[in-house]
Simulated scan of single mutants.
Amino acid sequence: MIKKAILPVAGLGTRFLPASKAIPKEMVTVVDRPAIEYVVKEAVAAGIEQIILVTHASKASIENYFDRNFELETTLENKKKFDLLKEITEILPKHISVISVRQPQPLGLGHAVLCAKNVIGNEAFAVLLPDVLVKNADAANDLAKMIHRFEQSQSAQIMVEAVPEHLVDQYGIVDVKNTPAEGESMVMQGIVEKPTVGTAPSNLSVVGRYVLPAKIMQLLESTPKGAGNEIQLTDAIAALQKLEPVEAYRMQGQTFDCGSKIGYLKAVLHYGIEHPKLGDEFKQLIQELKL
C-alpha cells in the first residue's frame, strides 16, 4: 500500500511575483484556505498517511500551517469561537503526519524528489506538484485510482489530461500507442517535451501527479543534469522505461495551474461557487458583474 507522498515546495514561485516575493506561492489562498491544503487533502483522500514537504528556508509558513498553534487555539477557546477552533484543529486527520526535508540547492524536480530518499526508504510513493490543483466530481479521486492501478500492475503511473491540439507545444506530451479512456491507464513509449504543433505523438499532457516505485530513487542518483542544468524527473522516468513498463493514467477530473495567475483566478472561480458557505453569494456577485 502506498502511504507516502512527496510535495516539492522549495521553488521560488517566480511566475507568481510580486506576491511570492514575501509569501510562498503555495500559501496564497484559493477562497479561504491556502492552495497547498487542497493538494494535501487530495493526497489524504487517496489514502496517503505521510506528507513529505521538500522545502526551503523561506517556506516555514507552510510547515507552520500544518502544525498546531497553541496560543491561537487557546485564544479561540477562551472567546468561545468553537467553529473557528474546529476548523484550524481539524485541517488534517490526526493519523496524518507532515514532515519536511530541505532541498539545499534548486537543482530541479528530480533532485527535489531525491532529497526525500531517506524518508521513502524502499517503499513506492506518490509525487504531487503543489502548483496544480486537481478537482474531482466523484468521491474516488484520480490519485486514488492511480494508486489502485499501480497496486494492480506494479507499473509507474503518470497522470495525463487531454489538451487542445494547438496547445501541445506548451506541455510535456506522452507517447502512447492508443489513447486510454478517462480513468484508465495505457503503457507509454515516452514523453516529448513541448513538441511543435503537428508533430506531437498525442494530445495527452503530463499533469503533475506521479506514482513511482522505490527504484526511481536509485535512477535519480545516477541521472545527469538535463534541461536547465537540472536533474529532471522525466529523465529518470525515461531510464525506468528501459527496465519496465510505465503507464499514462488519463485523469477524469479538472486541473488548475495555480502557479500561473490566470490559472489561479480560474481556481478561485470554480472553488468559490462550490464553497458551502460563500458559494451562493459568490454566484450572485458573478451575475452582477456580468451586467
Rank of each mutant, 00 (worst) to 15 (best):
F66M: 08
A35H: 02
G108T: 13
G108R: 12
L114Y: 12
K94M: 13
E73K: 09
A112H: 03
D83K: 14
G47D: 10
L109V: 08
I52L: 10
D67V: 00
N122K: 14
R102G: 00
T74I: 14
N78R: 14
I96F: 07
K86G: 03
K41E: 14
E63H: 01
E37K: 07
E123G: 02
H111W: 12
T75N: 07
N118K: 13
P93N: 07
S61F: 00
H56N: 09
A45I: 00
L85Y: 03
F70I: 15
L92F: 08
V31K: 11
S97R: 14
R68S: 12
E49A: 11
T89I: 04
S58Q: 04
K86H: 12
L76C: 07
P104N: 05
Y38W: 06
I120N: 06
L92P: 11
L107F: 08
P24Y: 01
I36A: 07
V101Q: 12
A116P: 12
V44M: 09
Q50F: 01
G47K: 10
A124L: 09
I99V: 15
V30H: 01
K59A: 04
P104H: 01
V113E: 04
V31M: 13
M27R: 08
A112E: 13
G108W: 07
K94C: 12
E42H: 14
E42G: 04
N78C: 08
L114W: 08
V40Y: 01
I48F: 06
T29V: 06
A46R: 13
A112V: 05
K79S: 12
A116Y: 09
K41W: 05
E77A: 15
P93K: 10
L92C: 09
I48L: 12
H56M: 02
K79I: 10
E77I: 11
K41Q: 15
D32L: 09
K80E: 13
G47S: 07
E37M: 10
F82T: 13
G108M: 11
